[in-house]
Design a protein around this nucleic acid. Structure first.
Lengths: 120, 120
DNA sequence: ACATGAACACCATGTTCATCC
DNA sequence: GGATGAACATGGTGTTCATGT
């Protein structure tokens, strides 16, 4: 058993939830997460977001579609990659989240234990 | 800011507390920690314990003394290494614990946030 | 088996570079 | 500057090896 949950798993968890809520593409998710974790001083690295998304595709949870960002192709040629659940992606994601939940609880327990054991 | 607290820091914290309570040597601390974390399925690796102790010595927090384990040298020649606080070791340790506490709280916060954000 | 230590190998992650619009 | 991706480098950590009692 590893000591703490891996950053990759943590990010995957958030990405899955974001896809469940039909929110966008990699770069956007990164910006959202940056904002969400600002208070914690944690800045999720760009590379980890993409790696996590690629892994989820590799594992058959998500598939990709490409799309132009803007409505008017004559103005905006920026291509973005959108992510969606595959046929059995929702089930796989559900299972994955379940496993991560167990690990999250375990980690919280270990950290709280450390506070109890080593302070006052 | 790193994602999660490092295993090294976590172990150092426990080792400092153990030295505060005048408990023993490396191997013994390892066995104690193994027992303490059995419920979490976490087995602190031997090498990390020693590395952590060495670092604390390097940082001037602890110093070492050697001693025979048993009372009777004719029976037990096993040499063990005991750890004690240096002159200003207690202050350094106190500061270190304070810093780790901040990080522990931050990590607990991030994990709890993940639970809130991604489940139900 | 108890005890300490170092060496080695691996893998997650952080940083940088490359590419396109 | 927005967006995606890969390459490279570093460092923490797990495993093994070495040594002695």
């Amino acid at each position: 058993m590893a000591f703490m949950i891996a950053q990759r798993a943590y990010i995957k968890l958030y990405l899955i939830t974001k896809v469940e809520q039909r929110r966008g593409y990699g770069y956007q998710m990164l910006e959202e997460m940056k904002e969400e974790f600002k208070l914690f001083g944690y800045v999720p690295p760009l590379s980890e977001i993409y790696r996590a998304l690629h892994e989820l595709v590799q594992e058959g949870v998500l598939y990709r579609t490409k799309q132009l960002k803007g409505n008017d192709p004559s103005v905006d040629f920026q291509e973005i990659v959108l992510y969606h659940f595959t046929e059995d992606g929702r089930d796989k994601a559900k299972l994955y989240k379940k496993q991560v939940k167990t690990d999250l609880d375990r980690c919280i327990g270990m950290l709280q234990k450390a506070v109890q054991d080593n302070y006052n």
